[in-house]
């Protein structure tokens, strides 16, 4: 089984999706291992750190991918780009529904949830950034997260958000400026007060 997985290792996401569409369960396994962590991380950030809700979104996004497999149109979009768009829409819908809830409270990490970051300073930075991201308008948050954390290119983000590349550049620039201003207020707290 592991040998079979190794044989699929070099295959693109799209090739694996086609294999799954032809009834290959091994391809689904590899796709899940590749994509679920990225989808979960992205959803967690967009949802202000709410891990439980992010897991729901991840499962829903992957379910939509499985349902799409049979009618997947080759070459039209990358699988990851398509998934990011689905996740972005699902998270935006959920954020709209909970507008009345205090976003800061939603961003608190769950009790007993271990962080993947060992270094305490990095933990503080990641938390501070998440807080600052939560205060950005939704589309700025999505654009900045995709560009600077997920590593997506501007054309990919344009495809995900359904806007022009110029609009993406504008969104990310404004988002970064807002983050820089917001985080500057926490320099002392984060130990950046002196050179």
């Amino acid at each position: 089984m592991n040998m079979a997985l190794d044989a699929y290792e070099g295959a693109s996401d799209e090739a694996l999706l086609v294999l799954y569409g032809n009834g290959d369960p091994m391809a689904a396994q590899l796709l899940t291992h590749r994509l679920a962590p990225r989808v979960l991380g992205f959803a967690t950030r967009l949802l202000g750190g709410d891990r439980a809700e992010a897991e729901d979104v991840t499962q829903e996004a992957m379910l939509r991918l499985w349902k799409q497999a049979a009618s997947w149109r080759s070459g039209e979009a990358q699988v990851s780009t398509w998934l990011y768009r689905v996740v972005s829409n699902l998270c935006t819908d959920r954020l709209r529904k909970r507008r009345t809830v205090d976003l800061d409270a939603a961003g608190d990490p769950e009790d007993g949830q271990p962080s993947a970051v060992e270094n305490m300073m990095d933990v503080d930075r990641a938390t501070a950034l998440q807080d600052a991201l939560n205060r950005l308008p939704d589309r700025q948050k999505v654009a900045v997260t995709l560009r600077h954390i997920e590593g997506a290119t501007n054309p990919e983000i344009a495809q995900i958000l359904g806007i022009s590349v110029e609009a993406v550049e504008s969104l990310t620039a404004r988002g970064k400026r807002a983050l820089a201003k917001d985080l500057a207020g926490r320099r002392e707290e984060l130990g950046y007060g002196e050179d």
Partner: peptide, 21 residues
């Protein structure tokens, strides 16, 4: 406001802060 290199440290920390499913 923070400079780009300062901000990059935050983004780097966020990239590492991914808990496995």
């Amino acid at each position: 406001p923070m400079q780009d290199d300062e901000l990059d440290l935050f983004f780097e920390a966020a990239r590492q802060d991914v808990a496995a499913p």
